[in-house]
Nucleic acid binder design. Structure first.
Lengths: 236, 236
DNA sequence: GGGTAAAGTCTACAGTGTAGATAAGGCAAA
DNA sequence: TTTGCCTTATCTACACTGTAGACTTTACCC
């Protein structure tokens, strides 16, 4: 099969020495295309032109492989903790994460469930970095450290919740979307689901970015007033 | 279909005719005990004393079985849409869901991921009922229907987000908890994770109910002000 | 009885993750 | 060069998965 490229030197050509990054990248490709269940060792091996067993050099498990994929995706996120406009930073972070989720919808289940099986302290550093950065951002903004933690939780909680929500209503083909939606809603017994049925039009024209933004505004307003209160009581 | 049975008599004893409820209950038992991955047709069959193939009468798939488990758990939720104290209702609903998640932590991944593979309109009615009830509650509270939808999304989003957050930090044995946590945090490079490391004590004394309640307060305050604004502009 | 449909059981197949044995290569010392 | 050794690659095998399809048994109605 397709032995491309040089391979350079002693290495038998066509096998330019795998790297963990290459493996994870291909794994992400598969997950994006067909979902996490379709990521099997055999398939990954085949698409890399390698023996499936060889992959165990780059990931201890299939589970570890999935963790790697999640981490790889999260690596795209970045924020600048030094920015004094903490609310702005949080807001753009939220939109970045949202776009990232829309770009890799099949990875989202991994993002939200895999951490459940690993205690916080033992997670890969890549997943903890955003947490550290946000904490830093918030402390610089004036929150006491423990409060920063609470804010982080509230914010990320809301963020992930929104993403799950949006993805649930997200369907690829917008034409089919409306049809499917109406079809599905029509199936509901009118007596029992009057509200939901009447909301069909509203459901169709869902604007995730707008919705997210409004939620964030509410949250940030609340958090800021909390910050004010705290600073006042501290200066007494 | 469903010969309404009488049970009793002719049926060979020890095989009192399975019901879908019984199957799902046992399935939930297994998931609670060992996680969703451990729910195999063969094991479920064995624990029910039946041929694994027979289970396909009560669920089309293994996937459908998992959906059934999720639905079964959600059935425990209830709220009274006629209550005029909508904020109170939402708050207790939140705590109910939280407790439910803590009681069935292994089901939470199903709760958040399974809907991602089924368009909203085609979900089992049991999963849509809470949505309808909340919409009804909010409309009675004065929200216009489309806004009620937005509120629902914001609320549930936050709620699920919180649950995921809390479950991530939740470890069964609290003694081991502290140890593990410190151990894990100690592993982090101090230069790169100063905030996180210093927060070890705060991480240990995590109070999920309190945290949830505060978040809800923030959210509800924001939502109520939105409601007021809307009503004002409507009465002009 | 006879006939029909449902419920239960068995076998088989294609696919999974991965342990463990085996082979092939690269490099250092003798 | 020959010998030994260690890392990497490949192969085989095993226990286990979901489930299609054929088959057997049971329950019930006429």
């Amino acid at each position: 099969m397709a032995t491309p490229d040089t391979g350079a030197g002693t290495q038998t050509p066509g096998k330019p020495r795998l790297t963990r990054e290459a493996v994870l990248a291909k794994a992400l490709e598969i997950v994006d295309a067909d979902g996490a269940d379709s990521l099997t060792m055999r398939r990954l091996g085949q698409e890399l032109g390698r023996d499936p067993m060889g992959l165990y050099r780059y990931a201890e498990n299939r589970a570890a492989l999935l963790d790697g994929v999640a981490e790889l995706v999260l690596d795209d996120l970045s924020l600048t903790p030094s920015d004094p406009d903490w609310k702005g930073q949080l807001r753009t972070l939220a939109h970045d994460l949202r776009l990232l989720a829309l770009r890799h919808p099949n990875v989202v289940p991994l993002l939200v469930t895999r951490p459940l099986s690993t205690p916080l302290g033992l997670r890969p550093l890549g997943t903890l970095r955003p947490l550290e950065q946000i904490l830093s951002l918030l402390v610089k903004a004036g929150f006491r450290a423990p409060d920063a933690l609470h804010v982080y939780r509230a914010y990320y909680g809301f963020l992930y919740g929104h993403i799950l929500n949006e993805l649930q209503e997200y369907i690829v083909d917008p034409d089919e979307n409306e049809a499917l939606l109406r079809l599905g809603l029509h199936r509901l017994p009118p007596k029992e689901f009057p509200r939901l049925r009447s909301l069909a039009p509203a459901l169709v024209e869902y604007d995730g970015a707008e919705e997210l933004d409004q939620g964030i505004s509410i949250l940030l307003a609340g958090l800021e007033s909390q910050l004010k209160r705290q600073q006042d009581s501290a200066s007494m």
